[in-house]
Design a protein around this nucleic acid. Structure first.
Lengths: 158, 158
DNA sequence: TCTTGACCTCAAGTATACTTGAGGAACTAT
DNA sequence: ATAGTTCCTCAAGTATACTTGAGGTCAAGA
């Protein structure tokens, strides 16, 4: 396979640092769509190195496989994506990153305020209802760091 | 149970927005340590509302249950934690938050630089080896957004 | 007292993200 | 040609974070 511009799954694993099984799994999830040779073995394009590397970075940021698959789906399928394709996609990705960082920072600052004022008692804690600012996908609390329905709980024992 | 300063699991669920099953699960994981009444039912302290609320916030930030359990273990067990206990704990927690946000921001900025220069081709991409800056706990890629072992892959088709 | 809702335990199921293993075919080098 | 490595599929296992269900007990109001 050396010299070819198609990569076997093992070569791709070496190039990305991923395991072979993880790459198969990612294919199943739609992150890559390798061709097959006459013997049925996967043959990847060089551009797939970048797709998978992007996936790994995105995972660092807490994106799920299916979210990543959606982003990668924006890249052209037939031809290898070029700089413009990647830049466009990355720029969009960046927006989501910004949002995520912003939410984390906002939540941290609220926690910070709570530590600063020493309250944590919900009478004036800004973390109460901070949930509006935090991206709580799916399951989540109705009250954060608080006990709003009854305002007497903490100050008694302090 | 009304009027008592001990809460049933259902009351705690109402106050935190958690499900009853989740609270039982969290007990199993050591986030709370409720007493039992004569009939074997769980009786929670008011302070447990805060413990669980903290757990929920921490989960937003991407901490695992066991990490959260470790943090909560720093609070006094016998007596209800007071403001000073919570502040001390939160302050420590805040450090971890800062680190996490910093790492995300650093990684984003590297991605940003890549978009800016339009490279994404690994010859000078700063996301390559960005892994040093990114907290990759456990499994992780050896190469990020790149294909260092062979520097010719992207520029051909662009 | 009796009924109904809340609670109990324990086992199993769900989703995400993979890994591991069995049994077998393909590829590559000598 | 043949050995050794790599690849294939499919099923099952792992860890995290819970939920759901079965079968049964407890508590609180009428």
């Amino acid at each position: 396979m050396k010299g070819s511009d198609l990569l076997s799954i093992g070569e791709l694993a070496d190039r990305t640092g991923l395991s072979v099984s993880a790459i198969r799994f990612y294919e199943e999830k739609g992150l890559v769509h390798p061709a097959r040779n006459s013997g049925g073995q996967r043959r990847f394009m060089r551009a797939d190195i970048r797709r998978l590397s992007f996936a790994l970075v995105a995972q660092e940021f807490g994106f799920t496989i299916s979210e990543i698959a959606s982003r990668l789906a924006q890249l052209p399928e037939g031809r290898a994506p070029n700089k413009a394709d990647w830049s466009r996609m990355s720029r969009e990705f960046r927006k989501h990153l910004d949002e995520r960082i912003e939410k984390m920072t906002a939540l941290r600052d609220k926690l910070d305020a709570c530590i600063g004022c020493g309250c944590l008692s919900m009478k004036s804690c800004s973390l109460y209802n901070a949930g509006d600012a935090a991206a709580r996908h799916g399951r989540g609390p109705r009250y954060l760091l608080g006990d709003a329905p009854d305002l007497a709980s903490f100050d008694e024992d302090s």
